[in-house]
């Protein structure tokens, strides 16, 4: 009996933690559907810094919820989408954007693959151009002609 009660209490224990969590942050949805729609688009372009590989739209981290609510408030105030992104970049840096902007820091990131393609095709062309010079294009000598004829007639006989 004692055991059953202990077990029951242990089973209830996690629920207490869950209940405490419920009282914490929640998304305060806006009454204006246009704002919710804009938030939805924006949040997909922004990174949750707690979970890093999730967008603000996907994340349930407390900071992500806070930031979504903050973005709602900014949109209600009449800020444009760019201004909202700038607001977050000023605080969290370019890392907060899922699509990094093109600047001197991210130049290699954006154009590195292109550079590799150019470099690779350059090398390939250089290599291919050298190939014909290695092959022997000189006309066949008399001895070679004879050998070739012999080989061809042998092949016919088979």
């Amino acid at each position: 009996m004692k055991r059953t009660i202990t077990l029951a209490l242990l089973l209830i224990l996690p629920l207490c933690g869950w209940a405490a969590k419920e009282t914490k942050d929640v998304d305060l949805k806006s009454n204006n559907p246009a704002i919710e729609a804009r938030l939805h688009v924006l949040a997909k372009e922004l990174r949750c810094l707690v979970c890093q590989n999730q967008t603000l739209a996907d994340s349930e981290a407390e900071l992500a919820i806070d930031l979504r609510n903050e973005i709602r408030a900014l949109l209600e105030k009449g800020l444009t989408d760019e201004q909202v992104v700038d607001y977050l970049v000023q605080r969290y840096g370019d890392f907060v954007r899922f699509r990094p902007p093109v600047n001197e820091m991210t130049f290699l990131l954006w154009f590195g693959p292109l550079l590799l393609v150019v470099l690779g095709s350059g090398l390939l062309i250089f290599y291919l151009k050298r190939l014909p010079s290695r092959a022997n294009n000189a006309p066949l000598s008399d001895a070679e002609h004879k050998r070739l004829d012999k080989l061809l007639s042998e092949a016919k006989e088979d």
Binding site: L49, V50, E62, L63, D66, R91, Y92
Partner: peptide, 11 residues
């Protein structure tokens, strides 16, 4: 956590 956001706090 509003001031935290202004300071870019995330962890």
């Amino acid at each position: 956590g509003k001031v935290g956001i202004d300071y870019g706090v995330y962890g």
